[in-house]
Amino acid sequence: MQNSHSGVNQLGGVFVNGRPLPDSTRQKIVELAHSGARPCDISRILQVSNGCVSKILGRYYETGSIRPRAIGGSKPRVATPEVVSKIAQYKRECPSIFAWEIRDRLLSEGVCTNDNIPSVSSINRVLRNLASEKQQMGADGMYDKLRMLNGQTGSWGTRPGWYPGTSVPGQPTQDGCQQQEGGGENTNSISSNGEDSDEAQMRLQLKRKLQRNRTSFTQEQIEALEKEFERTHYPDVFARERLAAKIDLPEARIQVWFSNRRAKWRREEKLRNQRRQASNTPSHIPISSSFSTSVYQPIPQPTTPVSSFTSGSMLGRTDTALTNTYSALPPMPSFTMANNLPMQPPVPSQTSSYSCMLPTSPSVNGRSYDTYTPPHMQTHMNSQPMGTSGTTSTGLISPGVSVPVQVPGSEPDMSQYWPRLQ
C-alpha cells in the first residue's frame, strides 16, 4: 500500500499530492522566468500547473527564495509595531506611495530583511487598517496617535501638521516623493554593498519588468496595427511575429492590442446598429396606417339613396333571421326581375335548405315592403301603392349592394327569390 497518492495534472505532468515540487523543477521555473518566458509558457514547457508556477515565482520575487514554506503551523507575524509605524510614516510623507514602493524602502533602510519582509498584500492590509482606524477615531485622537508614531512633539492640530517642515499644504506631496526618490538612490547604494547585491538587483529588475506600465504606442505603430486590423481581426502567430519585427513591439503586446481592438470594434458596431435601427424607425405612426385595407374592405359607393341603408337594423327591421341572411350572402350585381318571367313554384328541397333563413311567422307573405323604405322617402312611396304591378321595390342582398326588384302586385311571395340566388 502506497503512503502517498501520485497523479497526472491537466498538462500531463506527474505530481505527488500534498508534497511540494522538487527543487530542480523550481530552479528551472526561475531560470525560464529570467530568460523572459511568460508564466503560461513555463507552465506548458515544464508541465506544471499555472497556479503552481505563479505561486513559486511570486514567492521568489518577494523573498528571493525558491524553497517551499513549512507545511503546517502558523507563519510568524511580520507586521510588527515597528514595521507598522514605518509604513504609516512613509504614507504620511508621500500619500500616493504604492505598497511595493513601501516594501522596497523597508528593505533599503534595513527595517526588514528578506526573511521577515511583509508581502505587498500585508502592507496593503496595514494601510487599510490605518485608514479604518482613522475613520473610527476622532480628529484629536487621530492626531495624537500619528504624533506618537512619528515621534515628534510638534502641533498636529492642523492639517499642514501632517507634513512636517512644510508650510504650503500643496507642497508636502512633492517633497515626500522627492525624499522617497532619494531613498531609492540609497536603495541602490545599500544593496550594492550587501553580499547578495547582484541577486537582489536582478530580482528587482525582473520584478519591475513584470510590473509594467501601460504600453505607449507611437503613431507609426498605431498606423501599422490599424492597417493589419483592417486586413483581418484575428491575425495568426506568423502575422503577429512579422508585425512585431516590423514595428519593434513584443508579440504578446500585439496580441493584447488586437484583443482590445476587437472589443472596441464590437462596441462601435453595436452603436452603429442602434443608430441604423433608430433612423429606419419613423418618429410617429401615421393615422391612416393604423387601418389596414386588408382588414377593412372598402364599401362601394351607393348608386341610389335607398342603398345607403345596408342592414335591417338601420331600417328599423327587427327580424334577425333576414338580417343574418342578407349579411351572409355574397355580393351580387344589380339585376331586375321582369313581370314576364315565369313564376316557378319553389322546389321543396330548395325551400327546406333555406328554411332556417325565413321567419317562422306566416304573415311574411302579407307584409308590405314599406318597412324598408327610409324616412325621407315615405311620402313618395305612399303616393304609389304597392298593389300595382309596376311598383318597384329595392331588396338588399349584402352591405353596400342594392338590387332593384320588380315585385308582382298580386302576391309578394318571398319564396320566388331563392331559386334565382343559387
Score class of each variant (00 low, 15 high):
N3Y: 08
H5V: 11
G7E: 08
V8E: 02
N9E: 04
N9Y: 04
N9I: 01
N9K: 01
Q10I: 04
L11I: 01
L11V: 04
G12D: 02
G12P: 02
G13F: 00
V14T: 13
V14S: 14
V14H: 15
F15E: 00
F15L: 03
V16D: 07
N17W: 15
G18D: 01
G18L: 01
R19A: 04
P20A: 06
P20V: 02
D23P: 07
S24L: 09
T25S: 07
T25D: 05
T25N: 05
Q27P: 02
Q27T: 08
Q27G: 10
K28F: 07
K28D: 06
V30R: 06
V30M: 05
A33G: 06
H34E: 14
S35Q: 14
S35R: 13
S35E: 14
S35I: 12
S35A: 13
G36Y: 01
A37G: 05
A37R: 14
R38P: 05
P39Y: 07
C40K: 06
D41V: 07
D41G: 04
I42E: 02
S43I: 01
R44K: 09
I45F: 09
Q47V: 03
N50S: 15
V53D: 00
K55L: 00
L57G: 04
G58S: 15
G58L: 14
R59L: 07
Y60W: 07
E62H: 10
E62N: 06
S65T: 08
I66D: 00
R67M: 08
R67Q: 12
R69A: 07
R69I: 03
A70Q: 12
G72Y: 04
G73R: 07
S74P: 04
S74F: 01
K75Y: 03
R77N: 02
V78N: 01
A79I: 10
T80I: 06
P81C: 06
V84W: 07
V84F: 04
S85W: 09
K86T: 08
I87T: 07
I87D: 00
A88K: 00
A88I: 09
A88S: 10
Q89A: 09
Q89S: 10
Y90P: 02
Y90I: 15
K91E: 08
K91R: 05
K91S: 05
K91L: 04
K91N: 05
R92V: 12
R92T: 15
E93A: 08
E93V: 07
C94I: 08
S96K: 13
I97N: 14
F98Y: 13
F98H: 09
A99R: 05
A99S: 08
W100Q: 07
R103Y: 00
D104K: 09
R105K: 11
E109W: 08
E109G: 11
G110L: 11
C112W: 04
T113Q: 14
D115P: 14
I117G: 09
I117K: 15
I117Y: 13
P118S: 02
V120Q: 06
S122C: 07
I123W: 02
N124F: 01
V126L: 05
L130Y: 08
A131S: 08
A131G: 07
S132H: 09
E133W: 08
K134W: 09
K134M: 12
K134T: 10
Q135S: 12
Q136P: 11
Q136R: 14
M137Y: 13
G138K: 14
G138I: 14
D140K: 12
D140V: 12
M142R: 11
M142Q: 13
Y143R: 12
Y143Q: 13
D144K: 11
K145P: 13
L146A: 14
R147C: 11
M148E: 12
L149W: 07
